[in-house]
Design a protein around this nucleic acid. Structure first.
Lengths: 176, 176
DNA sequence: GTCTATAGGCAGATAGAC
DNA sequence: GTCTATCTGCCTATAGAC
């Protein structure tokens, strides 16, 4: 799904890769929509665990944002896309249950980022105009877009240029 | 393609909408890849014409960037995605000719933006660190990402929050 | 829980009449 | 240039043996 999208792979593809038959897959995931939703939930869980791990480290808000961006960067290995970014593109063709799971992923990310942003502003390590929620959304958009546009170029530099510039713009400008 | 992606529509869908048969479509576009490539080229041409129109207006670099962002915003009508943003997501499954056309679209945009950015810096209306090319890439990434993430929310505010913040960050800070 | 076999439908594509 | 008719292949999904 991260490589080819929900509409770009089949039960047959998965069956070959796992050395089982399509029928066996149907035993575990009754329909393709169930498989899709399960994969989103697993992705969301893993992401949430990674965020909790970041919260557990010592380091201020800027370091947390750096670590957050690095999570996205991992998708570049294997020319993958963020799973939910991919599904945002295919959103109009997704079954309802998958749509809900995608939105929940973004909501969770937005909430975590907004907390970090408020913490950073309070401690003076970050500065930004407007609401933490809007900035959180901008961060998600920028990172997703950077991954997206990197794909045709097979070029990590595309991603890193955008992510570095974004994080830099949120750090408190020293001389102001 | 902008709504459902290249893998999300069929000849049958198009035939119904145009009140013709699939066979008639095959007369004009031998294969789906030909149809896809033609649509990218048409999109690219229209975009290039819109950029030339922006160049023809009076108004400095900041106004041009605003107009550029507004082009992306138009896709939000009808919950569409930028065609090439959509195809960037599906890139791994695209025929080679379509891949090339997608990259050409992004290259053209990058070149146009880099020109505007250099012009803005020369005239003092814009300020940014790093190369114009890197900033151009960041602009494209951010706008594509803002469109992408807006989709699950059906919410233009998502897009506009990110695009406004981006353009603001490039305007020369008055007090520096 | 995995398999073989197959259903039923839709995909992209072509032949050939008009 | 558009049509009807059809092909071949893949899709998701199911039945039922082991």
């Amino acid at each position: 799904m991260q490589l080819r999208g929900f509409n770009g792979f089949s039960y047959a593809d998965v069956a070959v890769e796992l050395h089982v038959t399509k029928a066996s897959l149907h035993y575990h995931f009754a329909g393709k929509a169930d498989l899709g939703e399960s994969l989103i939930r697993r992705y969301d869980d893993r992401f949430a665990r990674a965020l909790a791990e970041i919260d557990g480290r010592r380091g201020g808000a800027p370091a947390k944002l750096d670590a957050y961006a690095a999570l996205y960067g991992r998708a570049l290995e294997g020319e993958r896309m963020c799973l939910c970014g991919m599904l945002a593109a295919e959103y109009q063709t997704l079954p309802e249950a998958m749509r809900r799971a995608v939105v929940e992923f973004f909501d969770r990310n937005e909430a975590w980022l907004a907390d970090v942003l408020r913490e950073g502003k309070r401690s003076g390590s970050l500065d930004y105009p407007g609401s933490a929620r809007d900035v959180a959304r901008t961060i998600i958009s920028t990172l997703e877009g950077a991954l997206l546009v990197s794909r045709p170029y097979g070029d990590e530099a595309h991603f890193h240029a955008a992510s570095r510039r974004l994080l830099q713009s949120l750090r408190r400008a020293p001389g102001r």
